[in-house]
Amino acid sequence: MQTRQLTHAEGPLWQEAIALYCDIFPQWEREPIVDIEQAINNGQSRCILLCKDNRVLGMSLTELYSPLSFAMLGYLFIAPHHQGKGLGKLLCNELFDFFDANADLKWLLVEAESGPEDFYKQLGFTTLNVEYLSPHYDNMQSTPMALMYHASSKHPPPSKYQLADIIEQIFLQSYYLMPDDPRLEQQRNRILSKEN
Rank of each mutant, 00 (worst) to 15 (best):
I78Y: 12
Y176F: 06
P32S: 15
E29V: 05
Q44I: 02
Q44D: 13
E37K: 09
R190S: 03
N189Q: 10
A79Q: 15
K154S: 10
G58H: 08
V34P: 07
A112G: 10
E117A: 08
F171R: 00
M1G: 14
L20G: 13
W107M: 02
W28A: 13
V110S: 10
A112M: 07
T62G: 10
N54R: 12
E16N: 14
I170R: 03
F125A: 03
N41Y: 00
Q83H: 06
S152D: 07
A146W: 03
M72A: 11
L76Q: 10
Q83V: 09
S159L: 11
Q141W: 02
L90R: 13
M59T: 12
R46L: 14
Y65R: 08
G74A: 15
R30K: 15
P12K: 06
F119N: 09
A151F: 01
C92S: 08
S45H: 05
P158I: 01
E195R: 14
Y75L: 10
K89H: 03
A79C: 14
E185T: 02
S114K: 09
H136Q: 10
P67R: 06
N196L: 12
A146H: 11
M145F: 01
Q162W: 00
Q173T: 07
K52L: 13
L147W: 00
G86W: 00
D104N: 14
T127A: 11
A101M: 12
R188V: 02
H155Y: 11
P144L: 04
S159H: 06
C22A: 14
M72Y: 14
M1A: 08
L50R: 15
S60W: 01
E16G: 12
H81F: 04
S153Y: 01
H150G: 00
N196W: 05
D100T: 00
Q2N: 13
S153K: 04
M140Q: 06
P80F: 02
M145H: 07
I78K: 12
I191Q: 10
M178T: 15
L50H: 12
